[in-house]
Structures are given as structure tokens and as C-alpha cells.
Design a binder for these strands. Structure first.
Lengths: 257, 257
DNA sequence: AGTCCAAACTGGTTGCTAACTGGTTCCCTC
DNA sequence: GAGGGAACCAGTTAGCAACCAGTTTGGACT
């Protein structure tokens, strides 16, 4: 245990600073926002315990009422967990990483196929207009391009063409297996992706690489991945062999109506 | 707390400047426009709280009546949210997640296209083995089949082949516009769907109906829809024209899976 | 060393007060 | 009809105090 006086604890200091910086005039809203920020910025880690409501109220100089309303908001969206009699704690986030949804290797494994990979090309160069658009780059920015042939149980399944801004990844040789691991190392782990699916027909090069005939159907996925702050970090076009691959999506109705 | 005098707050300064610049002579109309601009230019972020009507009125030197009329206009188109007793806040954008279950008509409208439809065939008959599997039917059960050509702005977009168990829908003539409306009337509204996407090439009939060449790429969606209790109510195969249609999916790192 | 119990926590709830906010009405001027 | 002003109603925020009901903890007892 640290022997800091309660008012000196990192959390208290963080909250006080956050409340001073932007106050909307509605205390419990601001406090809820500050707590949320403390969690996302790891001032409060998952499983950590909050000070008691009374102590917290006194430390940041608001009423217990306000502290409770703020905490209630966070409990409402599952960020905090309250237990009568025990202290309130930050919820354990069993967050399934985005890579589980977008990684080719994990996708293959979940289908019971052994993932494999062959490099087609790796290069750094100036961004094309389409890449500038997709990655929100400025004109003249450079990008890193990774082109791979993806296989499942040894059979060619897809051609993957990944583009990453050069300020995130300047050396394509760094990527040996997983692009996501490299991005995570550099603290650019994507948490959200927008994917556009369309159909196309195989051209000469596609046919040669995927061992299919020219004119065979292809499923094209264009995916843009974003970090938590909304910055695009990856733009990937994947050409799946339409005869060997399909794509599963679950849809849910909205609450209203 | 920030120590800005109320009249010095960024919002107030922004509004005063906007009102000075172009005043049409109709105060509440100008103020509404200024507020709208403040929101679009992020002077007011989503979730932010407005000053009270009285304070705002005093700060920009108009009457509370005018402030209220301006706010009412923004509340009307959903930009602001008012709660009796609590302050007025900028609406959180409830942007519809792309994983929402939508009908073809809604989908087209959200793309800014006018949905249209032509019947190809309507019939009731014994379920095929594939239909029995997909809809969890018993052997010998009957199904209702609806085959439609779907258009967007008059252009053929997709061939839709919907299959519904006959105990849900026994007369295909009942469906005039929306199949979902009919299902909702019968309390069989689907709330969840599993959709499989793959690529294919257009055959002779597809090409004729969609006005595309044979061999052109098609995006094939096989969708199974379920009601709240998990009963399958619809099995639909849709052949989208690959050149005119694409499919957007949003992926997110998910909590507590 | 282990058990047990009570004190000292914790969150949950209620009642009250005061100040503030949007909702409404009525009156007035231009 | 737009604009201003005032008064009043009803709901929310915020703070305070007291008390209830669980959990934790440590010390007394065996």
C-alpha cells in the first residue's frame, strides 16, 4: 500500500485536474467524464478499486450525491461494478481484440484451416490518391505497402494488399508474421474497422496467384482500421477466392420500433 | 471550475460574432443558424451542455423568448435535447451501427436512392431440403417463396429470393411492399440475422434481369432471419449486381464476449 | 492455529433544503 | 407574427445528514 495522503493519490490529482480543465457546470457529468478518462488513460486499471464514495467526495470537494450520480453513469455502461458493502471497482474488460474479427490467420483457424502466407512484395513509396483519401494523409505523404498471398491448408485463399502510413511503419521488413503485433508494439492498435465488401472477377494476375481461372468470382474486402482516437492506421484490400471463401456477418435489429 | 466570466465563454463569443456577421432581421432564425454552426464547427461537441436559457439570453442580449424559439428549432431536427429541469444538451449522435438489420428499402434510402421493386414470381410449395435445413422445418412442410427484382433509382440492383415458412405466411399475395411489415403484423418480426456473403458470376437469367453481361460479378448474400425466441422466419438469397452495389460492415473490439 | 464476533468500513436509501433549469402563461410593443 | 418581459409551475441538480444493510478486518477467545 502506498502511504500517500488521500488527497495526494494519483487518481485524486487526475480527477481534480480534469475537473478544473473543462467544467460544463454540471458536476456529475464532468466527474463521470473525468472518471471515464481515468479508466481509458489507465490511471485506473481494470480491477482497481475506487476510494469510498465519502472519501472521494471529500477529496475532490463535491457532495457524495454528485459522486454517486457520476458513478451510476459509469455503472450504467458497464465500466464500473458496485457491490453493496464492498468498494466500487473498475470492471474487468474481457475485450475481444479487433484482430479476432479481422485477422486472416485467426479467421482461418476458426474455420479449422491451417493459415499460411507468402510475400508477394514489400515497399515504401508515395501514397496514391486513393490511399491519401482512405488514410487521411496529406499530399506527398509516404506509405508502406505489404502484399501477401494468404493460404488455408496450403490452398491459396486470398491476395492481401495492406497499406500503412510510413509514420506508423517505415520499414516493411519489420513485419514478419502479424501486422497487428507490429502495430500494437507501436501503440497503434486498431480498435475499429470499416469494411466494404463487393464482388469482382479475377484478372490475369489474380488468377495466376490464386490458381483460378480468369473471370472467376472474387470477393473484395476493403478495410480501413482506426485506433481509439479515430486515426486511420491501416488500409487493406483483400481479394478472396469466391469459390473457396465466404464471409459471415451477424446483424441485429435496433431497439426502437 | 474555469474562471471565465460567462460572457467570455467560447460559445458566447462565437454566437455573438455569428449574429453580428449576418443578421437576417429574424433573431431566432439567426440564432438557430448560429447554434447549428457552433455544433458543426465543434464549438459545441456532442453531449456538451448549453448555458441556461436565461443566461444565454442575457449573454447575447436577446430575450429568453427568442432563445427558446431558436432552441426549439434545433430540438425539432434532433440536434439538441431538452429535459425539463435539466440543462439543454447537444444530442449524442446515435449513428446507426452498420451491423443493424435493415430491409432492402431502408438500405437503399440510406444510400440516397429511391427503392423500387418488381415481382418475378410468388408461390407456395413444399420446402426443398436446403430450405428445410435453413428454416428448421420438418420434412414435408410448405414454404412461401417471393422472388423480386429490387431497384434503386430505377436501376436494377439485386434479385431477391425470399423464403418464409407457410405457417408464418400462407398467402404470398399479402405481401405488397415490405415483407418485414407483414412479419411484424404477425408478431414474427426478425431481430437477428446471420448473413453469409460470397462472390459469384452472373448467369443468363441474372444477366437478363439485372441488365448486366453474363460473367459479370455478383455479390451473393444468404440471410437467415430469426425472431426474438430464436425461430427462423426467413431465408433469403439476394444476388446483388457487383458493379452497382457494395456492402458495408463495421467491426469493433467488443466488450465482454 | 484456527474460529468467532464485533467494530469499522463499504454502498444503498431516505428526507430535507436551496438553487437552478426548462415549460407555460399572460401581457405588452412594434 | 416577431420580440421582449415577468411571473409562476415543475423537474433536476447539489449538498447535507442520518440511517440501513452488506463486507471486511482485526483482535479476542478457544
Amino acid at each position: 500500500m502506498s502511504d500517500l495522503a488521500p488527497s495526494q493519490s494519483p487518481l485524486i490529482l487526475f480527477l481534480r485536474r480534469a475537473l478544473d480543465r473543462h467544467s460544463s457546470g454540471v458536476i456529475y457529468r464532468d466527474l463521470a467524464a473525468a472518471l471515464r478518462q481515468a479508466i481509458t488513460e489507465d490511471v485506473l486499471g481494470t480491477g482497481d478499486v475506487l476510494p469510498g464514495e465519502r472519501d472521494l467526495a471529500e477529496a475532490i470537494d463535491v457532495s457524495r450525491t454528485s459522486v454517486r450520480k457520476a458513478i451510476e453513469a459509469l455503472v450504467g455502461d458497464g465500466a464500473l461494478i458496485r457491490r453493496h458493502g464492498a468498494r466500487t471497482a473498475v470492471a474487468e474488460r474481457v475485450e475481444k481484440p479487433l484482430s479476432a474479427l479481422t485477422s486472416f490467420s485467426e479467421d482461418m483457424r476458426s474455420r479449422g484451416l491451417q493459415p499460411g502466407m507468402t510475400w508477394i512484395s514489400r515497399e515504401v513509396g508515395p501514397a496514391s490518391p486513393a490511399e491519401i483519401m482512405a488514410l487521411h494523409l496529406s499530399v506527398g505523404a509516404r506509405v508502406c505497402r505489404l502484399k501477401r498471398l494468404r493460404t488455408g491448408d496450403g490452398l491459396p485463399m486470398a491476395i492481401e494488399h495492406a497499406v500503412v502510413p510510413a509514420d506508423v511503419l517505415d520499414d516493411p521488413e519489420v513485419v514478419t508474421a502479424s501486422l497487428y503485433d507490429v502495430l500494437a508494439e507501436r501503440h497503434r492498435r486498431p480498435v475499429r474497422a470499416l469494411q466494404r465488401l463487393r464482388a469482382a472477377v479475377a484478372g490475369a494476375e489474380d488468377g495466376r496467384l490464386l490458381h483460378i481461372e480468369i473471370g472467376a468470382p472474387l470477393l473484395v474486402a476493403e478495410r480501413r482500421c482506426f485506433t481509439a482516437d479515430g486515426t486511420p492506421v491501416e488500409f487493406t484490400r483483400t481479394y478472396y477466392c469466391g469459390e473457396r471463401y465466404d464471409f459471415l456477418v451477424e446483424l441485429r435489429a435496433q431497439d426502437n420500433v
